[in-house]
Structures are given as structure tokens and as C-alpha cells.
Design a binder for these strands. Structure first.
Lengths: 251, 251
DNA sequence: AAGGTCGATCCTGTATACAGACAGGACTCA
DNA sequence: TGAGTCCTGTCTGTATACAGGATCGACCTT
């Protein structure tokens, strides 16, 4: 998941993929817009072959949609799609948590998760949370979810969760930054952290159903965040992921 | 999902993809084996460009695995992976059924599902079930599951279910044929059909939790089928999907 | 004036050529 | 005899050329 080698050592295909993805997520390429290969060539300054590879990869990443007659267009998502994707992630993370609980995650394996938990605790504890702390929270939160997913010990489950989380609006930290400007921010963070605590406790005690249920509910915090952010439209700039929303749904 | 145009009208890329997939699923290409591009060129008789596209597609279909140094190898699966994939499908189909129930599938939309249900009923009713009836059951069963998935009305959910079901050993009808030779066959079919009936009833009555639970349990029938088939190894030839199983797990 | 048909242009699908990277083996030196 | 280095062969990554097809516009016909 790390793109540490952002240097020129990486392949043209990956470079094209990153460039195109950035343009899609930033809204430079609008939803529904067709992307011709040579247009992509012009954008990315690489040849058609790697560009085509990048387009195919972005397609099954879910950001592009194949056009029957050939070529690709930027996929558009409704608000319903976004909410469903979040519920989907919650369901899958719930499954991962249940697996972790039922299969008896060893104390040794639980250790990193617990460390991550207490790191998050420290961040949440400060009352007026700084923007930097928020940013750190996003990072640690992503790490927590990744560790939890891995704890399922199931490659197929991990794979599916990664696929869902690849959608920018469905990732565990998608709408955390959006709330940083809201008065309810701190409360939501505290509730989220409570969920984290419970799921670790449930896993430790082999309570599969409890672990599953709390992860499902945990994902629904993202729904609440999204709704709040959409209502207070002042901070929509913190939600680049919404560039993929269809105009019909943004009304 | 239909590949009706098996003619020469289809693209070289798709042709290569189909040919390679067949060889993987039939076990001609063994798990762990590396597939070089020019080897694939020789097999499929198409040029390197479409072959490469096909390999990428098969990778994110889950049948191939990228090698860090470049190239691809046939992915190997443990028995645990297979069982987890089935549980995964059950969880996702459960979510789809719950969505269908909670969102109130209209009587009009439920109609095809009910028709499919009664068609299945007729097939199951005959006591010594012929092999032809078994084969018909597989087809109708796949149709039932597809209709149910669609009834969720959620594109992201449908997409994920399709992805999981693409794994040959996780599809709803993966191990149905395998039981055709078993004495327990008829019983299992009856139980499966009972599940079908219950989920339709639950959806009709807006019982989301019930619909979800029964679909989860329904998937576990596949686990039972698999275990039975693995025990009576006499009919492993009915399970081409198991070609992907690692040798360690087949012991 | 409107609709259909023909043509041109652009685009995608495919093939192939070339360069760099990696691996395996052989040879040499200690 | 063993280890290290160099060389060679093969493979992947990339670029580009070519052909078939689709789409859009313009012109002609009714």
C-alpha cells in the first residue's frame, strides 16, 4: 500500500495510473467524461501502451467504466452508491473482525493493534484538537483499520476490503477530515474511538458477533460525517472524493 | 455474464483471456507455475499486446498473481481460502438480501424471483433426480442468485458479489454438481430450496435481518457440499475448480 | 426544409520492433 | 575446489506503425 518510490524509478504504467487517478479524484476529469487514449497520452506524456494498461487498471479499480463501443469514461456515483459502499465496507470489516475473534487472534498478533489503539487515545484526549492532530488521526485510523483487516487472517477477505476501500469515498478515513471544521467533531471522534476499543476487546474475548456488530456500526459513522458535511456545505473543499458524485445528487 | 458470441467476432484480448482461463481452471497450467508472455502467446496464438491485457484482466479477476520482478504466476489457494471465499459470498449475498428487504422490493420486481423459485421447486420435487435435472438446477440456481443480487438495487454490492463469484470455487453453483453422486444429494437440495423460499418470504415481508441470516446460512451449504465431496474422493472429477487448490491442502 | 446517405477523420485494437533488466551458467582466480 | 565475476540469453516494459471500425458532419435528394 506504500508508494515510497515516487521517484523516476517506477514504471511508466504506474506513473500514468497515478496521474490519471489524481486528475479523476481532483475533478479535473469530470464524471461521465470520455477519456480517449491519446488524450491520456497527452496528459501523462507516456506512450499508448502503458496508458492503456493504466486505463484498464483504473477500470477495475472502479474509477473508470468501459464504453461498449470501446474506450473508457469517468465513472459517476450517486449519493446512494456512496452510502452503499460505506455499508459494504462496514459489512466486510465486520466479517474480518468476526474472523479475528472466532479464530482466536494471539496476544502477540493483537499487540500492534493495541499499540495503535493507545496512540489514537492520546490524539483524541486533547480537547481542542488541532488540525495536525486531526491529520495524524487520519493516518493512525487508517493503520488501525489495516491492522484489523489483516487480523482476519483471510487473504480473500483482505483482498475484498482493499477493493472497497480503494474507492476514495468508502475508505475508513474518507470523511474524517471533513468533520475537523464541525463543532460535533470531537464527539464523533470519541465515539469512533470507543468503537475501536470495543472491537479490540471483543476480539480478545472471542466475541465474534459483538466484534462484527460494532464494526458495522463503526462504518456508519462515516455516513453521519458525510451527511453533516453535505449539510454544512462550507467545507466541501475538504472532500475531494465527492468530485465523483453525479451532479444530480449534489443538488 | 453471457458469452453468446463465441464466434470470431470477439476481440483477440477476450479470446486470449478465455483460453488462458480455461487452461488455468482445467489444471493444464498448475498453481504456482509462472506464465511468461511469450508462452501465453504461443498458447493463444495472438500477439503480445492482447495477451498482456488478458493477463492483467485475469490478475484482477483473481486467477493470477503478479510477480514482483515482473510477469505472472497461477494463483494457488488453500482449502481455508476456499472456505473463506464461500463465507464471504454468503455475507455479501446476505447484505444484498437485507437491502432488498429493507428497501421494499416491489411486487413487480419480485415476480421473476418467484417464478424462478417455482421452477426450482418443480426440479427438486422429483425424487430420484436425474443428472439432467441436476444440470438444470445448476442453471436455475445461478439465475436465482443473480436475480436476488440484482434485487439489492445497489451497484456497488452487485459489483462485489460478481467479483467474489468469479472465483470458480466460490460461485453459488460451484459444488452443486459434486453432490449429484452422493446419497445425501436430494436432502441438501431440499434444504437449499427451503432457504430460497425463506429469503423470498423475508424480503416480501421486509424482514431484513431474517433475509440476511438465511442467505449466510445458505452459502454454508456449499461448505458442506465441499466437505462431503472431499471425503468421498471418488467424484473429484466433478470439481474442476479444485485444480487451483495447493497440493499441500489436497492431502 | 428535413432526412438520409456518403465520406472523411479520429480512435481503438493489434502487431512488432527495440532497449533495458534480470537470471543463469560458465570461466577464472584464489 | 569454491567463490566471485562476467557474459549471454531471455524476458518484460515501452514505443510506434498499421488496419479496421465507428462517429460526426456535410451534401444531396425528396
Amino acid at each position: 500500500m506504500s508508494e515510497r518510490d515516487t521517484e523516476r524509478s517506477i514504471s511508466q504504467t504506474v506513473r500514468a495510473q497515478l496521474a490519471l487517478r489524481d486528475m479523476i479524484l481532483s475533478g479535473t476529469l469530470r464524471p461521465g467524461e470520455r477519456i480517449s487514449e491519446l488524450q491520456a497520452v497527452e496528459i501523462t506524456s507516456v506512450s499508448r501502451t502503458p496508458v492503456r494498461l493504466a486505463l484498464v487498471r483504473l477500470e477495475d479499480e472502479g474509477l473508470l467504466q468501459a464504453i461498449p463501443s470501446g474506450g473508457f469514461m469517468v465513472k459517476a456515483f450517486s449519493e446512494r452508491d456512496i452510502l452503499d459502499s460505506i455499508e459494504l465496507r462496514g459489512t466486510l470489516e465486520g466479517l474480518a473482525a468476526r474472523f479475528a475473534a472466532e479464530r482466536g487472534a494471539s496476544a502477540r498478533n493483537l499487540e500492534p493493534l493495541k499499540e495503535c489503539l493507545s496512540d489514537l487515545d492520546q490524539l483524541v484526549r486533547q480537547d481542542p484538537i488541532s488540525v495536525e492532530a486531526f491529520s495524524a488521526y487520519v493516518t493512525m485510523n487508517a493503520r488501525f483499520h489495516a491492522l484489523l483487516t489483516d487480523l482476519s487472517g483471510s487473504a480473500p477477505v483482505i483482498r475484498q476490503i482493499d477493493r472497497v476501500s480503494a474507492m476514495p469515498f468508502a475508505s475508513p478515513s474518507a470523511f474524517v477530515m471533513a468533520q475537523s471544521a464541525l463543532p460535533e467533531a470531537h464527539n464523533i471522534l470519541l465515539i469512533g474511538q470507543e468503537h475501536h476499543r470495543i472491537v479490540v476487546d471483543a476480539i480478545e474475548n472471542r466475541e465474534g458477533a459483538r466484534a462484527e456488530a460494532v464494526m458495522r456500526e463503526h462504518a456508519r459513522l462515516a455516513v453521519r460525517n458525510l451527511r453533516l458535511a453535505l449539510r454544512n456545505r462550507t467545507h466541501l473543499d475538504l472532500l475531494p472524493a465527492l468530485a465523483l458524485l453525479t451532479s444530480a445528487a449534489t443538488d
